[in-house]
Design a protein around this nucleic acid. Structure first.
Length: 418
RNA sequence: GUGGCUGUGGUGAAGCGGUUAACACGUACGACUGUGACUCGUAUAUUCGAGGGUUCGAUACCCUCCAGCCACCCCA
């Protein structure tokens, strides 16, 4: 194969795109119901934006970014996630000036230079939502309820909500050193990865899969026991609101984030059905991000969900649609008649296919069958002359003789539609 | 970046040193010269991911590369 797609980049073919449209439409409906408006931002940003928001020391920034120098010698990067660009726009376009409370959603491709595997690609797609300007845990709860509603609407009960609190800039550093102290004593028993994590991100040792590490961290101090009173109060109110709305969740005090900007509430929708990619949606609060990017001191909370992963979870559902009518023709003069008829029917919203190339009637009928057309009609000399034709219902072969007019056809097709 | 597995037509695959590269599905056309599905017929890989090597001979054995999948790291 001479020309192939870039590694880890996929084509979504017509047979599959219906599934994607369904996910996107459901998200739009649920998010807009909750008062969110779509924001469309570039898929490319200055590299610096991601370094400053996601964090210089994260894996995303250190090794996964698609960055390059453009002809103006600026370093630009294909966005590895959506929040940074949305917040950049929020600040740059001064959306906060009119209303500090913004509820925004976005969808589109993201890019990370990783080895592809199940449910993870170099170009992947996310749908995300953000609320700015609300400190109150009500915002956290609304976001979580909306996410839960989305999965219910999409027909999935499997992913379950897990929540945690990572504390704030006050209490997290203290917890970090407490945890380090705990780990230091067990250093010798930790795996090599965890020894490295000890330095870079000690919280990550808590969800290491190596049995030895799991064993060693059994009695590890929990973030939730080390929250400051503000964070503690915030987290308990989030839980209260979730209980109030009967939103199912579980607390996972070992849940960690890969991006630096998260504070307080973090959450994931997790599933056991996607191999090692368990998270189908994830997010959290990011109270310091906007000011860190040079904007006003406004809090935020949001999430992103992975379209590929959701598409895998609903891959058993069917989304195909079929023609209402297939017009077969006998000669070139009749094809003119058929084309004119097709045009009129299309303009009145009836989905029609016809033969394009003057094939045999047999071939045309086979095609009508293959396309799963509901009806077919043959237009020959007779029909063209009399203006009447037999419309065949493909499911049972029953033919109905009606005039070749838009109205009559509309009536026939509309009638059996219900 | 690391590891494991796999690469035969549009698809699923058999073949494992000498075959017309089996079979099935799909696709196209036909059997009815005005009607699909079922049935039947015909066609559909000069070539086995690419390049080397071993051999009289390699799709098969060896090496290198490439690609895909899955896993690790990390993550949606």
């Amino acid at each position: 194969m001479a020309l192939t797609a870039v590694k880890g980049c996929n084509d979504i073919l017509p047979g599959e795109s219906g599934r994607w449209q369904y996910i996107e439409q459901t998200a739009r409906r649920v998010f807009e119901l909750n008062g969110f408006g779509e924001i469309r931002v570039p898929i490319m940003e200055k590299t610096e934006l991601f370094c400053r928001s996601i964090g210089d020391a994260t894996d995303i920034v250190e090794k996964e970014m698609y960055s390059f120098i453009d002809k103006g010698e600026n370093s630009v990067t294909l966005r590895p996630e959506g929040t940074a660009g949305v917040m950049r726009a929020f600040i740059e376009r001064k959306l906060y000036a009119e209303d500090p409370i913004a509820k925004l959603y976005y969808m589109g491709p993201m890019f990370r230079y990783e080895r592809p595997q199940k449910g993870r690609y170099r170009q992947f797609h996310q749908i995300g939502a953000e609320i700015t300007g609300v400190n109150d845990p009500l915002a956290d709860a609304q976001v979580l309820n909306m996410l839960t509603l989305f999965f219910r609407e999409i027909g999935l009960t499997e992913p379950t909500l897990q929540i945690n609190s990572l504390g704030c800039h006050e209490c997290r550093p203290a917890y970090r050193s407490t945890l380090r102290g705990f780990l230091e004593e067990r250093m010798d028993h930790l795996c090599d990865d965890c020894k490295r994590r000890f330095a870079t991100n000690p919280l990550r040792t808590l969800d290491c899969k190596v049995p030895g590490c799991v064993e060693m961290t059994v009695g590890a101090p929990s973030v939730l026991d080390h929250l400051c009173s503000g964070c503690n109060d915030h987290f308990s109110r989030v839980r209260r609101y979730l209980d109030l709305s009967s939103t199912p969740y579980s607390i996972n005090s070992r849940m960690v984030r890969g991006l630096d900007y998260y504070t307080r509430t973090t959450f994931e929708m997790v599933t056991g059905l996607l191999g090692s990619q368990s998270a189908v949606a994830a997010g959290g609060r990011y109270d310091g991000l906007i000011s860190q990017l040079g904007g006003p001191n406004i809090p935020g909370i949001g999430f992103a969900m992975g379209l590929e992963r959701i598409a895998l979870l609903i891959s058993n559902q069917e989304f195909a649609s079929f023609p209402d009518l297939f017009i077969a023709t006998m000669g070139s003069g009749e094809r003119d008649v058929a084309f004119h008829l097709m045009d009129g029917l299309l303009k009145s919203g009836i989905r029609v296919e016809m033969d394009y190339e003057g094939k045999s009637l047999k071939s045309q009928m086979r095609r009508a069958d293959k396309l799963k057309s509901r009806y077919s009609v043959v237009i020959g000399e007779n029909e063209a002359a009399t203006g009447r034709a037999s419309f065949k219902r493909m499911s049972d072969g029953i033919q109905t003789d009606i005039p070749l007019t838009i109205n009559a056809i509309q009536l026939l097709i509309g009638k059996s539609q219900q």
